[in-house]
């Protein structure tokens, strides 16, 4: 394995997996909450929230990265405060995870929102007449029914996070072992003479991860959907 992949490239693959897993794991509860709010609640600022969530999808990634730098950089508005309690995003792998999470958030929310909108509110009404308080209705009825959607959203977000490049390199740069994710490594290899072979190997890995993610998502969704339909 080490013959085929240089230690530097191998490091980039592992870092990418770590960054993407953390990005999805930490943003998933927020994604479910936002999707639920957008699907089921009517409140002032509904349109604004929807716009904000989708903003990273339509902004140039470099703009998102720059905005992250302004906000979460060491001298950024929020970054200053976080620095004092020991949380640093700038030029760390945590920053790469933050960038990946924000870039993947719209895809995650869209998938989960679709699943929530497909749940008949009449079932939730029935649960409440049976004595279930609102949070329990969500946990025992809504959540199990939207599980395929959550899963699809999470895997889609993971694939997006693996591939995130523009916002990441703008926000946390391209430091091997620290912030050099798989796409950043491919980019770096392509910048040096004779790096095409190493870049090509990483491209193969990227394709394999992406395809595996898609297949896994399809398979799990079908499995859960079958279980829910009870057939």
């Amino acid at each position: 394995m080490t013959d085929w992949l240089t230690p530097e490239a191998w490091q980039a693959v592992r870092l990418s997996l770590k960054v993407s897993l953390w990005a999805v794991a930490v943003s998933l509860p927020a994604g479910i909450l936002v999707a639920y709010a957008l699907a089921r609640w009517r409140f002032p600022g509904h349109g604004l929230l929807n716009g904000l969530v989708h903003l990273p999808l339509v902004l140039p990634p470099v703009v998102t990265g720059y905005l992250l730098l302004l906000t979460f950089g060491r001298r950024g508005t929020v970054g200053q405060w976080l620095d004092q309690i020991g949380i640093v995003f700038a030029f760390r792998w945590t920053g790469a995870a933050l960038a990946a999470a924000i870039m993947a958030f719209p895809l995650m929310v869209r998938a989960i929102r679709l699943a929530i909108e497909a749940v008949d509110p009449k079932l939730e009404q029935a649960a409440s007449t049976l004595g279930a308080p609102r949070p329990w209705v969500f946990l025992t009825v809504t959540l199990p029914l939207i599980l395929p959607g959550i899963l699809a959203g999470a895997i889609l977000a993971f694939a997006k996070a693996i591939g995130e490049f523009g916002a990441t390199i703008t926000f946390v740069s391209n430091i091997p072992g620290q912030t050099q994710t798989l796409p950043s490594a491919i980019y770096a290899f392509l910048q040096v003479p004779g790096g095409e072979a190493a870049a090509a190997r990483l491209v193969v890995i990227a394709v394999v991860i992406a395809m595996a993610g898609l297949f896994l998502s399809e398979w799990l969704s079908r499995l859960i959907a079958r279980r829910i339909r009870g057939t």
Binding site: Q125, S128, T129, P133, L145, R227
Partner: peptide
């Protein structure tokens, strides 16, 4: 009073059983 604190059973026209639960789990839900 919100529905869950009324202690009122409601049988709807379309049974509205929870599709992800077995009959037994449906029965014991409330």
């Amino acid at each position: 009073l919100p529905p869950h604190r009324r202690g009122i059973g409601y049988v709807f026209q379309e049974a509205r059983l929870f599709p992800h639960l077995t009959v037994r789990q449906n029965l014991l839900f409330g």
